[in-house]
Nucleic acid binder design. Structure first.
Length: 750
RNA sequence: GGAGCUGUAGCUCAGUUGGCUAGAGCGCUUCAUUGACAUUGAAGAGGUCACAGGUUCGAGUCCUGUCAGCUCCACCA
């Protein structure tokens, strides 16, 4: 006898085990069957499940189970990501609790410590994926630092270097002094901030009698004044265009600066005159690139302090100061030349997406992917229909973003990740071009230019042993490095690159590496994958990169269809955030209402790809629904033995016809990624047509109606299975409705 | 500045190529019920589909404009 009510605690874990052991999750390569593949967007290996992950898995598992039942060879491929920067920052917080920091360890030790940390925590997210009922193939599980991933990433890097798509450049990057690393454009966000806006006077050279003595420039960064190379005005600006070609004196360095015309200058802003600081501003940098002879000189060292340029430019007072202190000091030095200060100036400052700390634009040697060569295919994919994004309007966003993509800085100055497989040649002549940080034999950190350390007592080998980080002070020409995963042997000394790849460089190849690119049987059979399902916020960082790598390496889009779900917002309609205290922990809902209810509630509440509020009401509603199905099963169980009746009653005919319509509708909705509609359709049928009407009426003719009731209910369970896998399978097992488990039964046809 | 999304019942939202007598869930009202289920059943109230024009035999749906909310991208030194 079934219990009076459905108790999800009683069934969920044992049913997952049953599925996994049945082999239903593990498709075999079979040329006679058509593959259907979804690669799970890998969650952070040391993270835990959030509502977005739940929705993601609910939708993907729904598609997979549907296709599996339809007879496809369905592969749902799981994995987790090392999430380089995010994990390292998390780990650093742990270190801080112990009174330590990353600077206390050499890179290999630190890497191993983080690896241990991640391995310790990895089980949590894996268990949560199981708990969700995701019918993923654990035998093909991939972690993004698995050897096969690293190997492919290295091969790709090598190929891209050889093809000239990856290059080493000394150019403007987004840099965080707090974290000591570069960020890609996609990782930079902007936040509003109020800063004083200083109006600084620049004296005109060779002034004619009727002219003012000076020009005024508005800036929030007086500390950079001394390195200004030029002033710029908009050539269309009638007030100012006459200054083009004239000169002013830099109020701090006293050097003469030419005034140039540049279209980017907004005549409406400030005074309509801009100072140019090419090493620390994107616009100014662009100007410097297309104009000959604009010096690009950085004024910060790697610790965010003013470097020796301060002396060269005659403002020694600024040397060694941090940015904020330098700003104060510069204001003092400018003194009278500051005409006025606007204290209420609101502007947007760049911050990193993770911690919201300042990002500076700096010139640093970095590895870059030249996007101009590979983004064309990623754009054409849309036009050619090889890549379809749902909802359709997201294609516009994707296209815009790819079109505007600048070169992609892929090196990160953190240890947690895949080390860039490069070795720099070290010779007595170039030892001054490397800055190194390393832990010496007394466990003390040393920092400085390499050749200052190399002497009788300290060998290069010692430095390498305790190496934390190297920075090449110039962009190395190709002859100065070797691409290799292991240290090249021979006469010449080498020092390893310590930068790691941007996580998105490896996860951009995720569909490839998980399937065993380039020559595994799996890859040949399951690639390209069928559907990529993920959140829209990740289109720029991830989806676009996967498409680019897919075309670059295989000539194909890694997936034909992309379905983007919306953000799950908090109950109050706001973005979930710790500070607002409105974060929803899916575990609470799983405990209280069960996985089926949570999955179905989210699927039914997801607004066709738009953002939506966490649908608590629906989750509760579907828990009740699970119980409703359960009780239909209980009723069936209570029936006298099913009697086959010859008569076809009109009620039977009607319910069978309604069932047919339901099957058609569910298929139609699922085919269009309209999951909420599909769920709603089957819900309405089961509750309000089957249970409320047909079942009630059949009570007057129990024996005669029994076989139809069982048939319709069995089919309903199959239709419901992809949406609510646990309760449907539990009933299937308890009532022994089929030979094998429900997960492996056939999708209803008409 | 560029682009996109949204505005439908008290609340959260469906409404797919125009055919709507506008739906669902929750909430609300009234009633019922000890044999599948109160995690229930039956009945009901509730909407000039943001606003103004237009196209059409017909507009929640298409077009134009206005207002409001949200988001993304680019950025102002």
């Amino acid at each position: 006898m079934l219990d009076k009510n459905y108790d999800h605690h009683k069934y969920e874990s044992q049913i997952y085990k049953l599925w996994e052991e049945s082999g239903a999750f593990t498709p075999k390569v079979d040329k006679h069957k058509q593959p259907f593949t979804i690669v799970l967007p890998p969650p952070n290996a040391s993270g835990k499940m959030h509502t977005g992950n739940v929705l993601m898995i609910a939708i993907e598992d729904l598609l997979i189970r549907w296709k599996r039942m339809q007879g496809f060879n369905a592969l749902y491929l799981p994995g987790t990501d090392h999430a380089g920067f995010e994990t390292q920052t998390t780990f650093e917080r742990e270190l801080k609790k112990q009174g330590k920091s990353r600077f206390d360890f050499d890179r290999e030790t630190l890497y191993q410590m983080i690896m241990d940390f991640v391995l310790q925590n990895k089980g949590l997210i894996e268990n949560q994926i199981r708990e969700m009922g995701a019918s993923v193939d654990w035998t093909r599980y991939t972690f993004s630092l698995d050897e096969k991933v690293v190997r492919t990433v290295y091969d790709t890097f090598k190929k891209m270097v050889e093809d000239g798509i990856i290059y080493r450049g000394n150019q403007l990057v987004n840099y965080s002094f707090k974290w000591g690393t570069t960020f890609s454009d996609a990782e930079v966000q902007y936040k509003d901030q109020i800063d004083p806006l200083y109006f600084v006077r620049y004296q005109l050279v060779d002034r004619q009698s009727d002219e003012p003595e000076y020009l005024t420039v508005a800036t929030v960064r007086p500390e950079t004044v001394f390195i200004d190379t030029h002033l710029a005005v908009n050539p269309k600006d009638k007030r100012h265009k006459q200054w083009i070609g004239r000169k002013v004196v830099n109020p701090l360095s006293q050097e003469s600066m030419q005034i140039i015309g540049e279209g980017f200058v907004d005549p409406e802003f400030g005074t309509g005159i801009v100072k140019l600081t090419p090493a620390h501003d994107k616009n100014d940098y662009e100007v410097a690139l297309h104009r000959e002879g604009l010096p690009i000189q950085s004024i910060f060292n790697l610790e965010g302090k003013i470097n020796e340029r301060a002396q060269e430019k005659h403002v020694p007072e600024l040397f060694g100061l941090k940015i904020t202190d330098a700003r104060q000091k510069a204001v003092e030095l400018l003194g009278e030349r500051i005409e006025k200060i606007d204290q209420n100036y609101t502007h947007q400052v760049p911050v990193d997406y993770r911690s919201g700390d300042y990002i500076e634009n700096l010139i640093l040697p970095n590895w870059f992917v030249k996007t101009s060569g590979i983004k064309q295919a990623a754009l054409q994919a849309i036009g050619k229909g090889e890549l379809n994004i749902f909802p359709k309007w997201q294609e516009i966003k994707y296209t815009q973003w790819v079109e505007n993509m600048r070169d992609w800085a892929i090196s990160r100055q953190i240890v947690w990740g895949i080390r860039i497989p490069v070795w720099y040649k070290v010779t007595p002549q170039n030892a001054q071009d490397f800055w190194v940080a390393w832990i010496d034999s007394h466990k003390v950190q040393q920092k400085g230019v390499l050749n200052t350390f190399l002497n009788e007592t300290t060998s290069l080998a010692q430095i390498k042993q305790g190496l934390q980080r190297i920075v090449t002070l110039t962009a190395n020409a190709e002859k100065d490095y070797v691409v290799s995963s292991t240290e090249p042997s021979g006469e010449i000394d080498y020092i390893p690159e310590t930068d790691t790849f941007d996580t998105w460089f490896s996860s951009g190849q995720w569909p490839l590496v998980t399937l065993g690119y380039p020559d595994s049987e799996d890859f040949k059979y399951f690639y390209p994958t069928s559907v990529l399902e993920t959140g829209w916020e990740i289109v720029t960082r991830w989806v676009s990169r996967m498409v680019m790598f897919g075309y670059y390496l295989t000539g194909k889009s890694p997936f034909a269809q992309v379905y983007l779900h919306g953000h799950v917002r908090a109950l109050d309609g706001k973005k979930m955030s710790k500070s607002l205290g409105n974060v929803i922990n899916p575990d609470d809902y799983i405990q209280e209402f069960g996985v089926d209810a949570l999955r179905m509630g989210l699927v039914a509440g997801s607004a066709n790809g738009r953002d939506f509020n966490f649908p608590r009401d629906k989750v509760i509603g579907y828990k009740k629904f699970a119980n409703k199905i359960w009780n239909v099963a209980r009723y069936i169980e209570s029936l006298p033995s099913p009697v086959s009746a010859a008569e076809i009653h009109p009620d039977d005919q009607q319910v069978l016809a309604e069932l047919k319509t339901t099957i058609t509708e569910v298929n139609r909705h699922l085919g269009k990624f309209r999951f909420a509609d599909a769920g709603e359709t089957i819900y309405q049928f089961v509750w309000h047509q089957l249970a409320d009407v047909y079942l009630e009426k059949s009570k007057e003719r129990k024996e005669a109606a029994a076989s139809t009731l069982v048939e319709v209910f069995t089919t309903s369970l199959q239709l419901l299975h992809p949406f609510m896998p646990f309760v449907t399978e539990a009933i299937w097992q308890e009532l022994r409705l089929g030979a094998g488990p429900l997960i492996s039964s056939s999708w209803p046809t008409i």
